[in-house]
Design a protein around this nucleic acid. Structure first.
Lengths: 104, 104
DNA sequence: CGTGTAAGGAATTCTGACACG
DNA sequence: CGTGTAAGGAATTCTGACACG
C-alpha cells in the first residue's frame, strides 16, 4: 500500500539523452556511475540504455554526494546502508500489520 | 489530493521507439494519431517526439476504439466528452470540499 | 480513412581509448 | 578517481510521398 503506488517510477523508459536533460549531468558521468555500480539501467534489444524516474532520482543524490567530495565507492556503501534501513523498516511494518490483523 | 499524485505520469520522456514497445503499435500509427490530434507529444530541441505514460495509456484506449471500428474523429469526440465529464466531477468535488471546510 | 513502406538526411547512442591529475 | 573529448560505426527518428482502398 505504500510501495509502488506508481509503477511508473521504476519502469525503464528513458534514453540517456533525456536523463541528461533531467539531471543536468553529462552522458560521461551517467555512464560512469553505472560502471561504478551505482545505477542499473536496462538495455533495449540493440543495446541502448533505458532509465527510470527512480534512476533519475538516484543520479541527483549521487551528484550531491560527489559535490561533497565523496568518492563513488563510499556512495555505494551509503546506498547499501540506506537500502538495508528501508528493508528493516518494511519488515517491521509488515509485522505490525500482521499483529493488527490477528487481533481483528 | 487525487490529481497527480504521480507527476511522473504526465512527464514527457519517452521516445517513439519505447512507446512502440509499450503499446505494440507501429510508429506510423502513433504518428498518425498525433496528426489527428488525439495525442500531443512534446519535442526535444531537435525535433524528436517525447511521450508520457499518460500518452501511452491514451494510445491503448485509442487502439481499442479503432479495433471496434470507430473512426479517429469519433474517438476525438469521445475523448472530449470524457474530459468534460471529468472536469465537471472535479468541480463538484471542489464544491463539496468547500462546504465541508466551511462547516468545520 | 488508416496504415505500410522505401528514401535520404540528421541526430543519438555505443564502445574503447587517450588525457589530465 | 572522476571526467572531457575525438572517432567511427550502428541504430533511431524525422518528413513528405506513393500506394491501397
Amino acid at each position: 500500500m505504500s510501495d509502488d503506488k506508481t509503477s511508473y517510477k521504476h519502469k525503464k523508459v528513458m534514453s540517456i539523452g533525456i536523463v541528461r536533460e533531467l539531471t543536468g549531468l553529462s552522458e560521461r558521468k551517467i555512464r560512469y556511475y553505472e560502471e561504478r555500480k551505482l545505477i542499473f539501467p536496462e538495455r533495449t534489444d540493440r543495446g541502448t540504455r533505458k532509465y527510470s524516474f527512480s534512476d533519475v532520482e538516484t543520479l541527483m543524490e549521487i551528484a550531491n554526494r560527489i559535490e561533497d567530495g565523496v568518492q563513488t565507492f563510499e556512495i555505494k556503501k551509503e546506498m547499501k546502508r540506506k537500502q538495508q534501513r528501508e528493508e528493516r523498516n518494511k519488515m517491521i511494518r509488515g509485522q505490525i500489520n500482521a499483529q493488527f490483523n490477528i487481533r481483528k
